[in-house]
């Protein structure tokens, strides 16, 4: 399995760059993942989305539906794409350290 250095530590990642151990996530990891997603600066609005995803995942064990994410953070899907150019799954979930989205994506 490939490894990359994030925030001074080595992490196992899959071929899409999702970290393989959600437990080792922290804010520094999110910041170092941001560069690969076309995000130059992680703003408060980014953190609002990332923290919401993170909290929802820890509480329920799944990533929230897109509708739920938009409703709770107040960012509509267009805004989410402005914040995370690769979208809520490949961008935001990756930064929040969630498992890679599955199914017929």
């Amino acid at each position: 399995m490939p490894q990359i250095e994030l925030a001074g530590e080595m992490f196992d990642v899959d071929e899409d760059g999702f970290i393989q151990d959600p437990d080792r996530w922290n804010e520094e990891v999110a910041k170092s993942l941001a560069a690969g997603e076309g995000i130059s600066e992680v703003t408060d609005e980014h953190w609002k989305v990332i923290n919401y995803l993170r909290d929802y995942y820890l509480k329920f064990g799944i990533a929230p539906m897109v509708r739920r994410l938009c409703k709770e953070t107040g960012c509509n899907l267009k805004r989410i794409y402005e914040l995370f150019p690769s979208g809520p799954a490949k961008g935001a979930c990756k930064l929040a350290g969630l498992p890679k989205p599955t199914g017929c994506v």
């Binding site: 393989q20 151990d21 959600p22 995942y57 329920f60 064990g61 799944i62 990533a63 498992p99 890679k100 599955t102």
Partner: peptide, 11 residues
């Protein structure tokens, strides 16, 4: 060993 890391269990 990997299940919890790779999957959303409720899904």
């Amino acid at each position: 060993d990997n299940l919890k890391k790779l999957c959303e269990i409720p899904t």
